[in-house]
Design a binder for these strands. Structure first.
Lengths: 96, 96
DNA sequence: TCTATATATCGCTAAAGTCCGATATACAGA
DNA sequence: TCTGTATATCGGACTTTAGCGATATATAGA
């Protein structure tokens, strides 16, 4: 659990938005065809206005930091928050 | 209270070290000539191994983020943690 | 096997961040 | 006013990050 990757990942507003959206899927991704409890598929995040390749890179950064998990199902990749890592990170910030 | 500046400031290991050192001044800055409760003067942070100008820039980043306060006394500038901002930031991270 | 869709990766450019030495500014004290 | 010390700012080199379009890969379905 390296805090450095996490803090670098959080140092970008788009990635923070993505994490925040994932916190309330039913609120932000009701348009998704797939059931929300599978996670949110990557394409949904293009709503941030950036290109597909850039969105993919942001998701990869969140994933590398351990802030989200991903799972491929068919042609889609579904993302979910990784609450364990997030909670652990928050705990380390208690003694910031 | 701009979270963006704070997270960007925290996204650098040297600046996190600086903040951590300031948490226990007696532990890390016992060599300082001035009383520790005035704060820690900028030069003390050059122990990180970076140049004076770079250290000054890092301190400026921390200050711009509101994570530290600074006070000039004579030719020195003393830095202290800004616990209010830090606590408020930690609170916002509760709903990360 | 062919086509269509979703995602990842590549190659590139632009912008931002990091670092340094040199210089400027602020202050103290002679 | 002059000198010495502490800190800040400037200018430039270098690295990293962010963004894009194009292409590659993975999968589904005909």
């Amino acid at each position: 659990m390296e805090n450095d990757n996490i803090l670098k990942a959080l140092a970008h507003p788009v990635r923070r938005d993505m994490l925040a959206w994932l916190k309330e899927p039913e609120k932000h991704f009701s348009s998704q065809e797939h059931p929300l409890d599978m996670g949110i598929c990557a394409g949904q995040f293009e709503r941030c206005g950036l290109s597909q390749s850039t969105v993919s890179a942001h998701l990869a950064a969140l994933s590398a930091a351990g802030l989200v998990t991903s799972r491929r199902v068919g042609q889609w990749v579904f993302y979910k928050r990784n609450e364990e890592t997030i909670a652990a990170f928050r705990a380390t910030l208690s003694d910031l």
